[in-house]
Amino acid sequence: MYNFEFEKPGSIADAVAALGSEDAQALGGGQTLIPTLKQRLAAPSKLVSLTGIAEMQGVCMDDDGRMCIGAVTSHEDVAAQGASYAALADLAGNIGDPAVRARGTIGGSLANNDPSACYPAGALASGATIVTNSREIAADDYFQGMFTTALEEGEIITDVKFPVPEAANYQKFEQPASRFALVGVFVAKFADGVRVAVTGASEEGVHRWAAAEEALSANFSADAVPDAPDADGMIADLHGTSAYRAHLVAVLTRRAVAACG
């Protein structure tokens, strides 16, 4: 690693101020950022740890019935405290391994927007709102392709608000080495329609599967899930061809719908 300064502010305001210095970077649980730094693939001048900010911790329900998760809430805590949105709690409880879940944070995951990460699928399928120090961003506007988001320089996620669907389920097919999602599908059924978000599969990163949403909104059953989407634009790597990933998208969507009961 290159050396950097370390700062651990106690408030959002102090964190925003600390991030004002050139090449400063926010640090959540560090479960992705620290391995990246070890490879010397980034050289921040300063890391600003957000884990000491009490107001960014914890899970609660807001007046609109949304589950609000502080940005530095660990995956473990979401799994334990997220009973109001069980599908999301289950998603959190299956990210990485127990030690990673004890440190990794929802804000870190969403800010990084790894194309194989689980949370982006949960946020996008849920139509979540990503709250930052300066604004609120709808999930549909937030995810902008692999490792790319709507966040501006120095902007930090403070919490994430999840509308709770009538039924929802996340199915992850693990890449055998990293245990990230080779493909993951999150299905969320709301009164006004079904949202289906897919992670791991596309070169565009997390995305909604419109054909499935349309079909499932009309008939919410596994049989209604369309045939596999077009393999064009799907990721092809050591672990699977694009055709295989496209196939898994349909399989996992069916399983998710079936699991919704």
Partner: peptide, 8 residues
């Protein structure tokens, strides 16, 4: 014998 190969 990975899932991808078996499926293929």
């Amino acid at each position: 014998v990975s899932p991808s190969r078996v499926w293929a």
